[in-house]
């Protein structure tokens, strides 16, 4: 049984499952962030407060952090195994026709992780009291952060890379979960495209708007 739980396919399964959870979380986050565009800080702060205190959400939050950690851990673990599977590479490179961004998942993933660390410093740690700031007024925290150009640059780069990560991730997760269908797979692939473009674009739109127009 151990062998089954820790086989390559099982690890991929866990990685994909965690990924799918994260995929579901992102739109929720985006919707909340859209409230930042209002001039009234109240709705956003309320939403943030709700997310931080509501018991069910608290549980989901634990799952979310677990999902992030599992996704990262399994991603790195599998990547190292995969590197070990080819100790000597090709001199003439690899010119096979592939899902292009799939080759860089570990790197796009790493940059998303870098952003997450920053993100945690800015918000989550404030809530935990580890970093100075008002946990009841994230609206102002965000607005002041988006006024820093460097922060924006990093933000935009990270979201572009997240988009590239999502390009492959979305449909790949379905494939790994064994969900493949003559009709539905092409539909999923289209949704994946839309998702991978729309989501980072949404986040970027918010940051640019605040930066340039507020």
């Amino acid at each position: 049984m151990n062998k089954i739980l820790f086989s390559s396919i099982s690890k991929k399964f866990v990685l994909a499952l965690a990924g799918v959870f994260l995929l579901m979380f992102l739109p929720v986050h985006l919707i909340i962030n859209l409230m930042l565009l209002k001039s009234d800080p109240e709705p956003f702060n309320k939403a943030a407060h709700f997310m931080a205190t509501f018991p069910v959400i608290k549980i989901i939050e634990i799952v979310l952090i677990a999902a992030i950690l599992i996704h990262i851990f399994y991603g790195i673990f599998l990547q190292i195994q995969n590197w070990l599977a080819r100790p000597v590479g090709y001199v003439s490179g690899n010119k096979s026709d592939t899902s292009f961004f799939s080759k860089f998942m570990i790197w796009t993933g790493a940059s998303v992780f870098t952003f997450l660390v920053i993100h945690f410093f800015n918000f989550y740690f404030i809530r935990l009291g580890l970093v100075r700031g008002d946990p009841e007024d994230f609206y102002s925290v965000v607005h002041s952060l988006f006024k820093i150009p460097v922060y924006n640059y990093i933000y935009l780069v990270c979201f572009t890379l997240l988009g590239l990560h999502l390009f492959h991730a979305f449909s790949s997760a379905f494939q790994t979960l064994g969900l493949n269908h003559r009709i539905w797979t092409p539909v999923i692939n289209v949704i994946a495209w839309i998702y991978a473009i729309a989501l980072p674009l949404g986040f970027a739109f918010i940051s640019i708007t605040i930066w340039q127009f507020r």
Partner: peptide, 23 residues
């Protein structure tokens, strides 16, 4: 079960759905 276990044991990497194999 048997085939996947053997595949892992032999040191092949895992699938990241890049599609190079199919191509």
């Amino acid at each position: 079960r048997a085939m996947v276990e053997k595949m892992d044991e032999l040191g092949f990497g895992s699938c990241s759905n890049t599609g190079a194999c199919e191509a």
